[in-house]
Amino acid sequence: MNRLDTNQPRSQVIDRDFLEHRAKLIDLAAFLDRCERAEGTDDFRLKALRAAIPLLIDGQSERARRVLESFSDPSSEPIPQAPGKGASGAWGGPS
């Protein structure tokens, strides 16, 4: 297979990307705080987001794939009718 082998040392990856991802993590923390300050309850999207967070620190690899899968519709049959055109980003259970 023709690969683009990763040839950066870990220190270089951290140097290049740490601040960007630090900021994203703080954004996520602030988003959860903001949701909790607001009246109401979690919907299926916020529940899905909370459920995905532990995947980041479970020590297993392929986190991006597993986070995407955790947001995905696990069924396999076509649905009877399209409910609209948009997607919400998390699976809300069978419609």
Binding site: L68, E69, F71, S72, D73, P74, S75, S76, P78, G86, A87, S88, G89, A90, W91
Partner: peptide
């Protein structure tokens, strides 16, 4: 292929 939560299932179909 479909967006977001519909992508994996749709890709397989």
């Amino acid at each position: 292929t479909p967006h977001l939560e519909d992508k994996q299932k749709g890709t397989r179909l």
